[in-house]
Design a protein around this nucleic acid. Structure first.
Length: 746
DNA sequence: GAACCCATCATTTTT
DNA sequence: TGATGGGTTC
């Protein structure tokens, strides 16, 4: 274990009893966990079968799995590396019968939860203005995270009418999930705790199995996850949790920072080890982050340090508006790339998703390839949901939601009225929709559609039989063909239909891949993977170089040589909601988010803000984020305008300020204090030409490197540059900047 | 059942 | 600004 520092090594070797590893950003925490597992197995001869490592995301689980496989000599595959949720699914599939559930349960995702909630609210005749489904789902989720049952919720509600209503909603919602034989994400954890509580014998099986338990990102655990870990570790107490309270940024989704802050109270004999040496960032970046986070109260005392060199200073540039900010960031990345840096080494981080739009625009305009993290999920596309619903119905006939979704897709002439009557009848007779549909003659008022319904159920039964001796991808193909789903799309012939067909092919690829990788492929497990493994961690094609765009939240756990954080403005970051909140911790959580953002950067950190930007359709004017002022002045270079200035004024005074990482620490010793416009003058020398010269006009034919020949249709002067609209022969109309597009007049 | 129009409402996100 | 959903119309 020579490659570990003394603290890391100590953490690996302390294996008996509770251990809290406070692992600062970039302190090599994943390495410690994996080496610890290796130590247990290789040095202490612990049976790999007795080790459990829990993570939050599939991505983290996958990464840990790979690393464990790599460093453990023998038996690595027997170590249980899992997310909380998939671990619970595995346990519940085995034992949920003890709780009166069925082991072939379906897992409902957020969209399906919404559908159920809509039905519940309708059924209870509640005004969706007073009881918005989103808020209701949030309330239920919160209750479940606190391990509060509907009954307890009602008791707690006492005299509050509204709370009592919510208790009713909660109860009805659960009733429906149960009748659909479905669990939502929170249920997975909740039910597992319940299972263990009511069946100590079952719990003991797992306690004996998991003699050594490790939990990563412990600061993100919620109360139920805390309870679950506590149950599992109760017998042997060999519990090692790793986390960093300074990186707790998920309070809004139930993460309870007290789980980590009070670990020593919960486990009085706990050993605490701090990993404070950072291996990731330059000293300047790290100290800027330290300076900011020091403003938080109520955190575990620790200070990260590094042996890395100082590096360049952190920069903060203030722009007039979001367009200039985006453009400058993009230009800077292009320049960086020209200096031999890979686009993969750069990331732009922001507080809210909608900030990506401007950036995307400018990136497209300049032909800079990028990946946007956190786009729409593959599995939430209509055609995918349809096909998955078919598979779900084949696997679990009780899933009314899935049945209702596909009963008339593609069109079978079974209309809304018919479906509604069937559902009503099912509700009254306390049967599942599908069971009612098996004998449609008994449903009042739908005689005419009866034969069509028979056609549907016969088809489903046919698929079930077909499945008996077919592979999953064959089943999938069969459904696509026999239902006419594929044919219908092919007949449409539109671009949209073609893209849907592509997506359906992609789903098939995923199914085939699953079958190749799974030990014992089953329809249920496939569906489980679809629900549990978000598409966000799909394998990205590594061929192309791209810059990364994502929220600060999704950047957690990642690192990039060059990081740009845009939108450093009061009420954007920290968010207005946090500032207005009467919860003192709200701004502190934003500050932690800031800390997370800073510590993603290895070599360069460029911060920026805009004096004004469009938010929700109105233009707002902002002050600089307080976090900027919390960075020690000697580590920071400020530049840009100090207050919004009109375009005319700016053009006349000086060109676009440009974001950039400072070149080195050898900036003029006597830094001028932050002085508005004058500060941005050094930036002119940064290779920004005074005025772009062009030799073409509207109507001229020009040639572009990639797009080929085209005609200039529009020419707009923007500051020192021109925005050129060109109608290309091959690719149609494109907008671009003259300075970057390298257009040649023909 | 598709197409349209108007009103509404906007953090952060994984599973 | 722009996505989304409900309601109306043909």
């Amino acid at each position: 274990m020579g490659s570990l520092n003394s603290k890391q090594s100590e953490a690996c070797r302390y294996t008996d009893g509770p251990l809290l590893i406070l692992a600062g950003a970039g302190s090599g925490k994943t390495r410690v966990i994996t080496h610890r597992i290796a130590y247990l197995i290789d040095e202490l001869s612990v049976n790999p079968y007795n080790i459990l490592a829990i993570t939050f995301t599939n991505k983290a689980a996958k990464e840990m799995r790979e690393r464990v496989d790599r460093i453990v000599a023998y038996g690595a595959e027997s170590v249980w590396v899992s997310t909380f949720h998939s671990m619970c699914v595995r346990i519940l599939r085995q034992h949920i019968e003890c709780l009166g559930g069925k082991s072939n349960f379906t897992i409902y995702d957020t969209d399906e939860q919404k559908t159920v909630m809509k039905e519940v609210l309708k059924y209870l005749n509640l005004d969706t203005k007073m009881y918005p489904e989103r808020a209701m789902l949030a309330a239920i989720s919160k209750a479940k995270e606190e391990y509060v049952s509907p009954d307890q919720y009602e008791k707690r509600a006492a005299t509050s009418y509204r709370e009592q209503q919510i208790a009713n909603i909660y109860r009805e919602y659960q009733k429906r999930l149960q009748s659909n034989n479905a669990l939502d994400f929170d249920d997975l954890i909740y039910k597992t705790i319940e299972l263990f509580e009511h069946n100590p014998d079952v719990l003991e099986i797992y306690q004996n199995r998991f003699k050594y338990i490790m939990v990563d990102e412990y600061q993100d655990t919620n109360h139920t996850q805390f309870l679950l870990v506590k149950q599992l570790a109760a017998k042997y107490q060999n519990l090692c949790v790793v986390g960093d309270d300074d990186q707790s940024i998920y309070k809004f989704r139930g993460a309870d920072i007290h789980n980590i802050l009070d670990f020593e109270e919960e486990y009085p004999n706990a050993k605490v080890i701090r990993l404070e040496q950072n291996y990731r960032s330059t000293a300047n970046i790290l100290n800027a982050a330290n300076g900011v986070i020091a403003n938080n109260e109520g955190r575990k005392d620790k200070t990260l340090w590094t042996e890395n060199e100082d590096g360049g200073k952190v920069t903060y540039t203030e722009y007039e508006n979001e367009y200039q900010e985006a453009e400058s960031v993009v230009n800077d990345m292009i320049e960086k790339s020209g200096q031999g840096n890979s686009l993969n080494d750069m990331a732009v981080l922001y507080r809210t998703n909608n900030q990506s739009r401007v950036l995307e625009e400018k990136l497209l305009m300049n032909n800079v390839p990028y990946t946007l993290v956190g786009g729409t999920n593959f599995y939430s596309r209509k055609e995918i949901r349809d096909m998955v619903s078919y598979l779900k119905v084949v696997a679990n006939a009780n899933d009314d939601l899935a049945v209702a979704r596909i009963i008339n897709v593609p069109k079978r002439g079974i209309g809304d009225t018919t479906i509604n009557r069937a559902r009503e009848f099912a509700l009254l007779s306390e049967m599942n929709l599908y069971d009612v549909l098996l004998t449609p003659e008994e449903i009042p008022g739908i005689q005419r559609a009866a034969e069509k319904i028979h056609g549907f159920t016969r088809q489903i039964e046919g698929f079930r039989q077909f499945m008996a001796d077919a592979t999953l991808d064959e089943l999938y193909e069969e459904i696509l063909e026999k239902t006419g789903y594929k044919m219908q799309l092919e007949a449409e012939g539109t671009d949209e239909a073609r893209s849907r067909i592509d997506n359906l092919k992609e789903l098939k690829n995923k199914i085939v891949k699953y079958e190749e990788e799974a030990e014992e492929p089953s329809l249920m497990e496939l569906l489980e993977e679809i629900s549990l493994v978000a598409d966000t961690d799909r394998e990205e094609d590594t061929e192309k170089e791209r810059v990364t765009l994502m929220t600060l939240h999704s950047a957690k756990g990642l690192e990039f040589p060059y990081v740009y954080i845009v939108g450093m403005e009061e009420r954007l970051f920290p968010s207005g909601m946090a500032i207005d909140s009467d919860d003192m911790d709200a701004v502190e959580e934003e500050r932690r988010l800031c800390y997370v953002g800073f510590t993603r950067a290895m070599k360069g950190l460029a911060l920026s803000g805009a004096g004004t930007r469009m938010v929700n359709g109105t233009r707002i004017y902002s002050k600089t984020s307080r976090f900027i002022d919390e960075i020690p002045e000697n580590l920071l270079i400020r530049r840009g305008i100090s207050e919004p200035v009109s375009y005319e004024k700016r053009n006349w005074r000086n060109p676009e300020p440009q974001t950039s990482f400072s070149k080195s620490t050898s900036f003029p010793k006597k830094e001028k204090p932050y002085a508005g416009l004058t500060m941005s003058s050094p930036l002119i020398s940064k290779g920004m030409p005074g005025q772009v010269v062009i030799d073409f006009a509207v109507g001229d034919t020009v040639k572009h490197l990639k797009f080929g020949k085209g005609t200039v249709t529009e020419l707009v002067k923007t500051g020192t540059d021109y925005e050129v609209k060109v109608n290309f022969e091959r690719v149609g109309e494109k907008k671009m900047f003259a300075s970057l597009a390298k257009l040649k007049k023909l």
